[in-house]
Amino acid sequence: MLVDRKQTVLYVEDNHLNMALMHHIFKKNLPSVLLLKAETAALGLQIARRTLPDLIILDIGLPDLNGYEAMERLQNDELTRPIPVLAISAFAQRSDIERAQNAGFSGYMTKPFQVKALTEAVEKLLAGID
């Protein structure tokens, strides 16, 4: 699936290794998508409001605000409310996945994630397919 070169994804993650891995995945599998990065939820919220990315990939276990708090702020802002948000977390219990769905996330991936599954999820969300 070809993705419009103008599409942008914001990745909010505090772990440098995960950030480097995501950069590599996008470079190799989604080269036409611009990947923006933020190491804190607060910075991610600022970047999201300023750039209005097509998709946000949000780690749940962030140190300043957890992913649920950040998601609530995204949903309460009329500018960022329409942006789909993909949750990524090491928490893999059914209750964790249900909590994310109830919080309004567009999808949920557990760490470690499969590169193909992540790539497909990003492509679908960027194409507007649930």
Rank of each mutant, 00 (worst) to 15 (best):
H24M: 12
K37D: 01
L45C: 07
M109G: 01
N18C: 11
H16Y: 14
E98F: 02
V122N: 12
M19G: 00
S32T: 13
L62V: 08
I25F: 05
N76D: 14
V33W: 10
A100R: 03
N15Q: 01
E39H: 00
M19Y: 00
P63W: 03
L52N: 05
D14S: 13
F91E: 08
T80F: 05
L55Y: 09
K28Y: 05
I83R: 00
A100W: 03
Q101W: 03
V9G: 00
K27I: 02
N15S: 04
I25Y: 10
R50S: 11
A92F: 13
R73H: 05
S95C: 01
A127K: 15
P82Q: 03
R50D: 11
I129W: 08
D96K: 03
I57C: 13
A90T: 07
N102L: 14
A92I: 02
F113N: 01
A41F: 10
L65K: 15
M1I: 01
V85W: 07
Q7S: 09
D59L: 13
E120I: 12
P112S: 11
P112H: 14
K124Q: 11
P31Y: 11
A100L: 12
F91L: 08
A20W: 03
A48V: 15
K116H: 11
L74E: 06
G107V: 04
L52D: 02
A90E: 07
I88S: 00
D130L: 15
L36S: 05
D64R: 12
Q114H: 07
T119K: 12
R5Q: 09
T40I: 04
L17W: 01
A38F: 09
I97Y: 01
I60P: 08
N76H: 09
R73M: 10
Q46K: 15
D14C: 06
V9T: 05
Q46D: 13
G67E: 06
P53V: 01
P53W: 05
G44W: 07
E69L: 11
I56D: 03
L55T: 09
P63D: 09
L43K: 15
F105Q: 00
P82A: 09
L65N: 13
N66F: 03
K6N: 12
G104K: 05
D14L: 04
T119L: 10
L58V: 14
N66S: 02
